[in-house]
C-alpha cells in the first residue's frame, strides 16, 4: 500500500509513555524519552496527554526553511527524513514546525525526526489503547471525525466546570 499516516487520537492516550520508550530503544539503543522522536506532553491535573510527532506534511515547513536542503521525502513511506551528512544543526526546522515534529538530541546534537520506522512504526505496535494508529489518510479522516463526535457527546454529558479545590 504505502502512503499511510501516523494517526494520533489524544483522547485515548493514557500518558504511559511506552511510545517514547520504544522509539528511543529502537532508534538509539537506549531507553531515554529525551531521545525519542515522539513526545507525550501532558497536563496531569487535567488528565490530558497528547503525543506529538511529525505529521509528514504535504507542504513541509521543515523542508522549506532548511538552508542546506538536508530534509527530503522518503519515496516508500512518504516520511520526511534528515540527511545527517548535510545537516548543519541550525535547528531551523524545529522552530518552523507547528507540531513539535523534529527535536534535538541533547547529547549528539543532531536532529531527531520520525521516520515511520520504514513503514512499521514501533510506537503503533506498542500503543496499548490504539491512541496511535498507522492508517490510510482517508481512514484517518474518518477516525478523526469519529473521535470529534465522541468528544462532543462527552461534552454534553459533562458540563466542564471550574476546578474545585478540596477544602481542608
Amino acid at each position: 500500500m504505502g502512503g499511510e499516516v501516523l494517526f494520533i487520537d489524544f483522547e485515548a492516550c493514557t500518558g504511559c509513555r511506552i511510545c517514547e520508550m520504544v522509539c528511543s530503544l529502537h532508534h538509539e539503543g537506549v531507553v531515554n524519552p529525551a531521545k525519542s522522536r515522539i513526545r507525550v506532553v501532558g497536563w496531569e491535573e487535567e488528565g490530558v496527554y497528547v503525543p506529538l510527532s511529525c505529521q509528514q506534511c504535504d507542504e513541509p515547513f521543515c523542508e522549506k526553511v532548511c538552508p542546506v536542503k538536508a530534509t527530503y521525502r522518503d519515496e516508500k513511506t512518504r516520511a520526511m527524513l534528515v540527511n545527517h551528512d548535510l545537516c548543519i544543526g541550525c535547528r531551523s526546522c524545529i522552530m518552523a514546525c507547528p507540531f513539535e515534529g523534529p527535536a534535538l538530541d541533547p547529547e549528539a546534537k543532531k536532529i531527531l525526526k520520525c521516520d515511520l520506522c520504514g513503514g512499521e512504526p514501533r510506537c503503533v505496535a506498542f500503543c496499548p489503547t490504539s491512541a496511535l494508529k498507522y492508517l490510510q489518510p482517508t481512514s484517518a479522516m474518518l477516525e478523526k471525525k469519529n473521535s470529534a463526535f465522541l468528544r462532543r457527546i462527552r461534552m454534553l454529558r459533562v458540563k466542564l466546570t471550574k476546578p474545585l479545590l478540596v477544602k481542608g
Partner: peptide, 21 residues
C-alpha cells in the same frame, strides 16, 4: 470516569481520571 491514566510504560492503565459534575 473521564479517562484511563497509566504509570510509565504500563499497558494496563488501571487508574482513572475522574471529574464530578
Amino acid at each position: 470516569w473521564l479517562k484511563s491514566v497509566a504509570c510509565t510504560g504500563c499497558a494496563l492503565h488501571c487508574d482513572r481520571y475522574y471529574l464530578v459534575w
